[in-house]
C-alpha cells in the first residue's frame, strides 16, 4: 500500500504508524457533566466498512501526522491531508 504524504510524496505503508479514527474530536470542556463525551472520545470507536478517515503518522519520514481517507474494504485511498489542516478545517466548519 502506498500513501502520498503531502510533504514527502509517495511512500510505502511501512513508513507510517496509525492512530485510529480521525473524525472524533477531543472534547474541550473539563466540566464533569461532559464525562460521557470523554468516555466516547477515549474508548468508543466505530469499525466502518468503506470510507474512513484515519490518523497516520509519517513516523519514518517527515514525522507529520496525516489524515488518510481510505476504503477499508478495497484499500483505495481517496485523500491525504495533514492532521493540522484537517483540524483547522474542522474548526472552520
Amino acid at each position: 500500500m502506498l500513501i502520498k504524504c503531502p510533504h514527502c510524496g509517495t511512500r510505502p505503508v511501512e513508513e507510517f504508524t496509525f492512530n485510529g479514527d480521525a473524525s472524533i474530536q477531543r472534547p474541550t470542556s473539563n466540566d464533569p457533566a461532559t464525562m460521557d463525551q470523554w468516555f466516547d472520545y477515549v474508548y468508543l470507536r466505530d469499525n466502518p466498512k468503506g470510507r474512513f478517515d484515519e490518523y497516520a503518522h509519517h513516523s519514518s519520514g517527515c514525522r507529520a501526522w496525516l489524515v488518510v481517507t481510505r476504503d477499508t474494504q478495497t484499500h483505495e485511498i481517496f485523500n491525504v491531508v495533514t492532521a493540522r489542516d484537517y483540524a483547522k478545517k474542522r474548526v472552520a466548519s
Binding site: 514527502c8 511512500r11 513508513e15 519514518s60 519520514g61 517527515c62 514525522r63
Partner: peptide, 10 residues
Amino acid sequence: SALTQMAHVG
C-alpha cells in the same frame, strides 16, 4: 532531500 528509513535507522 528526503526523510526516510534505511535498515531501521532514520
